[in-house]
């Protein structure tokens, strides 16, 4: 991954950190699910794909994913200039980064406590 892509990922991760709450559910397994689903929806939307809205749960992920994709497009015009391949790389990298910040690299000792 080139430096500019890394920088872009950092900008988007920073946007998520300042603006969103969905990535901070209290346990690691919740965060894995939230990150995968919501960033997944955002990626689909950016790539012009139709997300699955067939259950209330999926619809709820879509709410956050939709606003994320919308926010990216509104605030960072370079997102609108990217090809599908670039967007896919960007969003995969972003997922990895957010997973790192909120799960794998997290200093939060409660993430793996078995009971809520």
């Amino acid at each position: 991954m080139d430096e500019t892509m890394k920088e872009k990922i950092e900008i988007l991760a920073d946007y998520i950190m300042h603006r969103c709450l969905w990535q901070f559910h209290s346990r690691a397994w919740d965060r894995e699910r939230q990150n995968a689903q919501i960033l997944g929806v955002a990626k689909q939307l950016l790539l012009g794909e139709e997300p699955d809205l067939s259950t209330p749960e999926l619809k709820c992920y879509w709410l956050d994913g939709f606003h994320l994709a919308k926010g990216f497009r509104q605030r960072f015009d370079w997102v609108n200039q990217m090809s599908k391949e670039e967007l896919a790389t960007l969003m995969d990298g972003l997922k990895e980064r957010v997973d790192y910040l909120t799960i794998h690299g997290s200093l939060n000792k409660e993430l793996t406590v078995a009971a809520y």
Partner: peptide
């Protein structure tokens, strides 16, 4: 989410009600 995420988590698991965190 500090005082009441627990109940939302339980309602999600037990009754399938999605949890949406807002500001």
């Amino acid at each position: 989410a500090r005082s009441a995420e627990y109940i939302c988590n339980e309602l999600r698991v037990r009754y399938g009600i999605p949890r949406l965190d807002i500001d």
